Computed example of a mutant assay.
Amino acid sequence: MTDAHYNPDPHAHPGLHLIAIFEAGKGLLAFAAAFGLELLGPEPLLRWLRELTLRFQISTEHGALAWLSNAINPDSVHLAAALIFAYGVLRMVEAWGLWRVKVWASWLGCLSAAIYLPLDLYALFRHPGWMSVAVLAVNLIVVAVLARDIRKRRD
């Protein structure tokens, strides 16, 4: 069934519109993070990393922190900002499609939320708590709503 035959009434799709708002919020946060990285540059990031390692008495000679302190430079900050910005664009495109009740947006949202489910389960077992449960629950709800939407379009 095509989008033209699907009910465009906004009241018929409150779940899609709620997810669209959620995705748009993630997109706006990603834009803010990307612009923040570009404005800050590597110097404050390196200073904050040094302050954290001193405060918590963590060694930066080996491991992930050593790699991170060596990896933070202007080029890596620009690359990180570009990737975060691209993620924001993807979230905003998905939000627009969900708001306009497009089937491709339901597929995109369902797949992108489902990709995180194994990581959510891992986080739940490694760090049990209300936050892990909440993140898993939200992603399961998003996948269920979007999968239901896709299934309805096929009937």
Rank of each mutant, 00 (worst) to 15 (best):
A80I: 13
L117T: 10
L108W: 10
R91V: 04
V93M: 07
E94T: 13
A86C: 06
L90N: 00
A81Q: 10
I115W: 15
L83A: 11
A105S: 11
E94W: 03
L108N: 04
W99A: 07
I84L: 01
A95K: 02
A82I: 07
R100Q: 13
V93Q: 00
A113R: 04
A86D: 12
Y116Q: 14
V103N: 13
S112V: 02
L83M: 13
V101S: 05
L83Y: 08
W107S: 07
Y87T: 14
V89R: 05
A86K: 11
I115V: 15
V89L: 14
L117H: 06
I84F: 00
S112E: 10
K102C: 12
Y116H: 12
V89N: 07
A81K: 09
F85L: 13
G109M: 04
A81I: 08
I84A: 06
R91A: 12
A113S: 15
Y116C: 05
K102R: 15
A80S: 12
L90P: 00
Y116T: 13
W107Q: 06
G97W: 09
G97M: 12
A114Q: 01
W96T: 01
A81N: 08
Y116D: 10
R91M: 14
S112C: 06
V93Y: 00
L83V: 04
G88V: 02
A86N: 14
E94Q: 13
V89M: 08
L111A: 14
Y87F: 13
R100C: 10
V77K: 03
W96Q: 00
L111W: 13
C110L: 02
Y116I: 11
A95C: 01
A81Y: 03
H78A: 15
A95W: 06
A82N: 11
V101N: 07
A81L: 10
A113H: 06
L117V: 08
V89F: 03
V89I: 12
V93K: 01
A113E: 11
A113F: 02
L79V: 10
G97D: 08
V103L: 15
A82D: 13
L117S: 09
G88A: 08
V101Q: 07
S106N: 04
A114H: 05
F85A: 15
V93H: 00
V103S: 15
A86F: 12
V103P: 14
Y87C: 03
S112N: 13
V77N: 01
W104D: 12
W107M: 09
Y87R: 05
A80Q: 06
Y116S: 09
V89E: 07
R91C: 12
L83E: 08
A82H: 14
V103G: 15
V103E: 15
R100N: 09
M92G: 01
Y87K: 10
H78F: 05
W96G: 01
W96K: 02
V93G: 02
M92R: 02
I84G: 02
L117C: 01
V77S: 08
F85W: 15
V77Q: 01
V101W: 03
G97F: 11
W107D: 07
A81H: 04
A105V: 03
A95G: 07
R100E: 03
L79G: 02
V101I: 13
G97E: 10
R100T: 05
A105W: 06
W96A: 02
A105R: 08
W107P: 09
K102A: 15
